[in-house]
Design a protein around this nucleic acid. Structure first.
Lengths: 240, 240
DNA sequence: CCTTCGGTGCGAACACTGTACGCACATCGG
DNA sequence: CCGATGTGCGTACAGTGTTCGCACCGAAGG
């Protein structure tokens, strides 16, 4: 009944036992997915393209990964493994917390798709790296002496996530334009000026933004300012 | 040359001049899109489905909206119109700022897709509501007396965005499960307990979370705690 | 009145997407 | 040597966003 749709088998078609590639594996798939995500953005990652890059058939990936969403979860957990954390017994807690916050930001900017995924998938199912990250962070804040370490962490991480998300989204937009950040800003200014024509404060803000020459430095210091604010607020909760 | 693919014209097929619907318009499309987004989530919104709900053909929407991304931008701007802001001359700045933060959070939770979009589309192209929102917020922080109102705003908004994003993503996951939040947590606990088996601090945190009865109250107070932290930090920047 | 014309609706089509299914084959335990 | 098990993958399905060109409407102009 079923028609034979496959080509006639032949010796030549039969696969040689030379493994060619180190074989398809979950970790290899996740690693390559991250490469694509970093290089081409989240909407450029398709299962077919990913498979092609791994010299594999389109649907072979599903032997190692249940679904694309699951693959994204794995990728998120993977990059959480990159984030450095200070040891729990750091002498200067502010310096250590700053370091941790900056490491998070750096990772989020290196993998701009991270923010998109965080906004879509709750972190309900935590992988090993995420769990370890949470554990070490909690250990640190507990050691520092915060009476409610989890709340302190949630506060700090929320700020960092919020700022990094906005920044990553901005950088993605810039990247899509193909221009440098400065050029993109310059090209955007007329529209921004027009949009804020009727708004005195906004216009001031845009003018100030346009005046500063180095956008990277502007973003760095903006992040640093908010971080100091949050750390000041947290310091007040520290008993002594 | 071109084949006549259309059906034979007939009097009956001809459109009556009863307008039936108030016609297709950009605002009607955006309004209905938001309804769908709220009810069924971001991945359930397709141009075809949206068109069907408007009694329109699939591709008719493109007469009013250039692309789906543009439609999402319009939707974002639209919900920014919902966010209440305190008047610039509020006597108690902390109460007013708290109000603004809570209004933002409420909107983000009412439209959980907002966070996903914020993570993907930079707020480069600002619509009227967004511009107005920024203007009024800047006016308020300036009136309060902050020497760097824009930085103060960026800090506060980053915290609120970060916390709301996490919360919205969590609520989306819960909603997808079809269960109540408490039931979902209960069902998740075994997995969480196992994931944190080797992590003392994490296990403590989960145990504490499982102990409290009302998840809504937990989220509210978590948000409130962080907000106080940020406002404390900002207060230090206020000259007096 | 008839005619042109800009704007609107839309059916068909294109190039993709994620993924279910079932077959072919390689390897391994008995 | 024989099954069992696991891996790769070709095909197919039900969608997706978007383009193109035609059909039609109401208004403007002669």
């Amino acid at each position: 009944m079923a028609a034979r749709t496959n080509p006639i088998p032949s010796v030549w078609a039969r696969r040689q036992s030379e493994p060619d590639q180190p074989a398809l594996s979950r970790t290899a798939i996740v690693r390559e997915a991250i490469v694509v995500l970093d290089a081409e953005g989240i909407e450029a990652l398709s299962m077919r393209k990913l498979a092609a890059r791994l010299n594999a058939g389109a649907t072979s990936l599903y032997r190692h990964v249940a679904t694309k969403d699951e693959l994204m979860e794995l990728a998120v957990d993977e990059v959480f493994g990159e984030m450095a954390l200070p040891p729990a017994d750091s002498p200067d807690w502010r310096a250590a917390a700053t370091e941790a916050a900056e490491a998070f930001r750096a990772t989020a900017l290196r993998h701009p798709w991270l923010s998109s995924v965080l906004g879509q998938a709750g972190l309900a199912y935590l992988g090993p790296n995420l769990a370890s990250y949470g554990e070490r962070l909690t250990a640190f804040f507990t050691a520092v002496g915060f009476p409610e370490p989890v709340r302190a962490i949630d506060t700090l991480i929320s700020y960092v996530v919020g700022m990094s998300t906005t920044e990553a989204a901005w950088l993605t937009t810039v990247a899509r334009s193909g221009e440098s950040e400065a050029d993109f800003i310059a090209r955007l200014m007329p529209a921004a000026r027009q949009a804020s024509a009727d708004y005195a404060h906004l216009a001031d803000a845009y003018a100030a933004a346009a005046a500063s020459p180095d956008p990277v430095e502007v973003r760095n210091s903006k992040f640093g300012y908010g971080l100091e604010v949050v750390l000041d607020g947290l310091a007040l909760r520290l008993p002594r």
